[in-house]
Amino acid sequence: MTTEQRRFARRLRAQATEPEDIVWGLLRNRRLDGLKFRRQVPLLGYTVDFLCVERRLIVEIDGRQHNWERDYDTTRTQEIERHGCTLLRFSNAQVRDDRDAVVAAIRQAVG
């Protein structure tokens, strides 16, 4: 991991969106079934929103810009999954409107 990747991840943590803050509130301090999640983690040249190393699970929160970046997101997801990780994506609206469904989907992925 380069110094620039660390700086970028740090900047993302400081400028978190409301949906990212909501999810972080659900995952931080082992609040979800005792699982340790980290946020804005450099991984394979990308920065992922939330990572549980123990379960090789990545949780991504997608804002509007992801509608225009579908090809990039697809390539990124495929590369991450080739390395044995599971990647879940939730839209900002899903996080705001149905937190219980987000938590249920994460639990199912680690179950």
Rank of each mutant, 00 (worst) to 15 (best):
M1P: 06
M1I: 12
T2N: 00
T2Y: 05
T3F: 09
T3L: 14
R7G: 03
F8Y: 06
A9P: 01
A9H: 00
A9K: 02
R11I: 04
L12Y: 15
L12N: 09
Q15H: 15
Q15M: 07
A16G: 12
E18M: 08
P19C: 01
P19I: 06
D21I: 15
V23W: 09
V23P: 06
V23L: 08
V23R: 03
G25S: 14
L26P: 00
L27M: 07
L27R: 01
R28P: 06
R28E: 05
R28D: 11
R30K: 04
R30D: 02
R31C: 15
R31N: 10
R31F: 13
R31S: 15
D33W: 14
L35C: 07
K36T: 10
R39M: 01
R39G: 00
R39Q: 02
R39E: 02
Q40N: 09
Q40F: 06
Q40D: 10
G45T: 00
T47H: 07
T47L: 08
C52P: 03
C52W: 08
V53L: 15
E54T: 05
E54V: 14
E54Y: 11
E54S: 07
R56W: 14
I58N: 09
V59A: 03
E60H: 13
I61G: 00
I61F: 01
D62R: 01
G63Y: 00
Q65P: 12
Q65F: 10
H66Y: 12
H66A: 15
N67Q: 15
E69I: 14
R70P: 06
D71Q: 10
Y72G: 04
T74S: 12
T74H: 11
T74Y: 15
T75Y: 08
T75I: 11
R76T: 08
R76N: 08
R76Q: 02
R76C: 04
T77Q: 09
Q78Y: 06
E79Q: 05
E79A: 15
I80G: 00
E81W: 00
E81F: 05
R82L: 07
G84Y: 01
C85A: 11
C85F: 15
L87P: 02
L87M: 11
L88I: 03
L88P: 05
F90C: 06
S91F: 04
N92R: 01
A93V: 06
A93Y: 04
R96W: 14
D97I: 03
R99D: 09
D100K: 11
V102Y: 10
A104L: 07
A105C: 11
I106G: 08
I106C: 05
R107N: 07
Q108Y: 05
A109W: 01
V110E: 08
G111I: 00
